[in-house]
């Protein structure tokens, strides 16, 4: 057990390091960095001496490799460098803006999950055919509407027309509901798709047939078999969903004019404030990696086939990866790929 956790931990740290390296490479290939741009700007009133001080302050007059090692070291000590536009510590900016986004994403996740569960259940268990059809259409619809469109519509209807919610963020819970529902709605589509497919798939398994043959009703079978079996793929999707929520927060915060990491990255991109952009990317990656790490730890407790002892871990990992194969990248694709993998109905003779 301890070795399993340590190994997962090492892997998580390795991914973080690689993500850092990747972002460093990407951002250092920029033609002319932002500081020099600022110094060389025509309206710049800096003296060459001031410019030199500025360059030294940010350390960008050093060789790239030295910058890389220094920043990497800083990473361990919580030092992500300084913002170019306002000179503040990036770490401070992140911690200042994280809570708002965390609240938004957290409530968004809850709303998305609740919505996905309801829709998936209705698709699979609704009594009337037409009702099933209507609900089957919902996930597809929600994955086809860009998040900013949903945001604008919700804002317009509920804030301006109905006056149910405040049009700007006044730090109340009511002001949080609409943006959270917006991101929640967007992530609920793929979740509902995956969940409803996995429920359908589980229900077509021979062991469910055997349960029927024991005289069990739908409710009993759902509690005993369907629930756990169909939640497994959702667990695998969780890390991806969190990442998607954070990305969704970028657009949502822009629509609702809320402070948060999303607003911060948009401003930073527009002002070419690279250390901040890099800091946000690293933070979200860290969150994603952490969620996946936790999932890895929790998984064996839910699926006994994933044994914790070292000998079988590799096989187990492979199996889990195989189960999640193709679930990378965008959630929308993930949902579709998951469905495509679903074997055709199990023949029974």
């Amino acid at each position: 057990m301890r070795r399993y956790i340590l190994k997962r931990l090492a892997q998580a740290i390795a991914v973080l390091w690689a993500a850092y390296t990747l972002s460093f490479i990407l951002l250092s290939v920029l033609p002319g960095d932002a500081i020099r741009n600022r110094i060389n700007a025509p309206d710049s009133l800096m003296t060459p001496q001031q410019a030199q001080t500025l360059l030294e302050y940010y350390g960008s007059n050093r060789p790239l490799i030295e910058q890389y090692v220094r920043d990497l070291w800083g990473l361990f000590t919580g030092d992500l460098g300084y913002s170019i536009t306002n000179g503040g510590r990036v770490w401070g900016l992140l911690t200042l803006n994280l809570p708002a986004t965390a609240k938004l994403a957290g409530l968004g996740l809850v709303i998305g999950l609740v919505f996905a569960v309801i829709v998936a259940l209705l698709i699979n268990y609704a009594k009337f055919g037409w009702l099933k059809d209507v609900f089957s259409f919902l996930p597809a619809l929600s994955t086809s509407v860009p998040i900013f469109v949903i945001g604008i519509i919700v804002l317009n209807v509920f804030a301006f027309d109905l006056h149910w919610i405040p049009p700007v963020d006044n730090h109340t819970f009511t002001a949080l509901i609409a943006p959270a529902a917006t991101v929640g709605l967007v992530v609920s589509g793929p979740l509902a798709q995956v969940l409803s497919n996995s429920i359908r798939l589980t229900r077509s398994q021979p062991f469910v047939h055997v349960m029927h043959a024991k005289g069990a009703g739908e409710g009993y079978i759902f509690r005993k078999d369907i629930l756990r079996n169909s939640l497994l793929p959702i667990l695998t999707l969780l890390g991806l969903t969190i990442g998607e929520l954070l990305a969704g927060a970028v657009v949502t915060e822009s629509v609702y004019a809320r402070a948060g990491l999303g607003q911060l990255i948009v401003t930073s991109v527009n002002t070419q404030d690279l250390p901040v952009v890099q800091g946000i990317v690293l933070l979200t990656t860290a969150i994603y990696v952490t969620v996946n790490f936790i999932t890895d730890i929790v998984y064996p407790f839910i699926d006994p086939r994933i044994a914790l002892d070292e000998k079988t871990t590799r096989a187990a990992r492979t199996r889990r990866l195989a189960a999640a194969e193709g679930l990378g990248g965008d959630l929308v694709e993930a949902a579709d790929l998951f469905e495509k993998r679903a074997p055709v109905e199990v023949a029974r003779s």
Binding site: V15, A19, L22, S23, L26, L27, G243, E244, L246, A247, G248, V250, V251, I265, V269, V277, I280, V281, T284, T285, Y288, V289, N292, G328, G329, D330
Partner: peptide, 12 residues
């Protein structure tokens, strides 16, 4: 690459 949320990666 996949551990960085796609949309953020595109922004970068």
């Amino acid at each position: 690459v996949l551990s960085i949320p796609g949309f953020l990666f595109a922004i970068v």
